[in-house]
Each structure stands twice: as C-alpha cells, then as structure tokens.
Amino acid sequence: MLDLTRGQFVKHVVTHPFEGFEDLRWKKAGSMRIAIFIVFMLFFQQVAYSRLYGFQYYSDYDKVFNIVPYIFKSFIIFGTWVVANWAMCTLFDGEGTMKNIFINSAYALIPYIAGYLIGTVMSHFLIKDEYVFIQSIEIIGTCWTFVLLISGIKAVHQFSFGKTIALMLLTIVAMIAILFLLVLLLTLFQQVIIFILSIYTELSYRFRV
C-alpha cells in the first residue's frame, strides 16, 4: 500500500485532505526540498498576483517596485506561522517537529497557490463580466488550503479536531505577538545604529584636520 515516491506523495496529500497527512506522517515521506520550493512558489504567486494580473482587473502602482511587502506576505508570514505553531503546540503536547510543521503547512498551501496562479493566467483571457470564474477558482483554492491546513496540523501534532482549531487560533495570536516584537526589535536596533552613526559623525567633525 501507498508505495509512492516523495513527489507522488505531494499529489496524494493534496487530493486526500482527510487521510493524506496521516499517510505522509506514517510513511515519513515529507520532503523539505519540495516544501521550500512551495514556499518560493508562494512568493512568486504573490508577485504574480500584483504584477502579472490581467490589466482589465487590477494593477498595482507601477512606478516603484518594492519587494519587501511580497517577502513579508510570503516568507515572513509563513516562517512566523511555523515558529508560532511549533511554539504553541509544543506547550500543548503536540508531537510535530518544526520540520514536519513546515512541510505540512507548505503542502497545504498548494491549492491556494495553484488557484491564484490559474486565476492570474485566466485573467488574461477573460473580461470583467466573467470574473466570477476566476473568483470561484480562487475561492475554491483558498478553502481547500484551509481544509488541508487543519488536516495537516491535526496530523502532525495528533490532535483532536477541536484542539487543532483552538491551537490554530492561538497560533495566529502568537504570530501577531512575534511580529510585534520583531518590529520593536527592528526599531530599537535602528535607534542604536543611529546613535552609533551620530557619534561617528560627531567625532569625525571634531577630529578634522
């Protein structure tokens, strides 16, 4: 049974929302490389969504391209999710390791990424009146990802359904806390750097020959 390669397991997991992740855990067939690839695809999807979407629907302010928001929307949010989930679930007897959480969460993102990429491609062929087709694909992808995420977190930690939902909400709270602290840290470091720079400037003025 289930004599699949790691690559084939991805398809199995995505198409079997309820037992896929259990099988993955049982077979230990999660691949970190594929997971990282998926996160990079998430980043690409975010960029594509705002830059390559059909002109008749939507286009961003195109005078400047700032990559930071896209990095935030993909890598940072995802990374924070993994860390926060690991931190919270370990406290509540979750069995998942950071690596497994990473893999399961990344696999769960596939329908979302696929839905939006398909939507992006379709937006070049459809007019505004037909937006409902694109929208439905995007919504289905998002919902599917949501189901997979619940299933994935449930499997990786061996939680009950209720506990999974509760801990996912807690994870979001923890994510907000982590991001807040990160911003705080960044600001403080900025202050320190400005302080050092101003001392340097002061000294360089005083010791000018």
């Binding site: 008749q56 629907y57 007019i127 505004k128």
Partner: peptide, 17 residues
C-alpha cells in the same frame, strides 16, 4: 493601457477577443 483606465480597456479587450 497607457492611460491606465481599466474599464475602457476591458471593453476594448472584449471586442478584440
């Protein structure tokens, strides 16, 4: 597209398609 007026672009695109 140059003038970034999406609704008009949409109509023209419909005709073009």
């Amino acid at each position: 597209e140059i003038s970034i007026s999406r609704d008009r672009y949409n109509r023209a695109f419909e005709g073009y398609r």
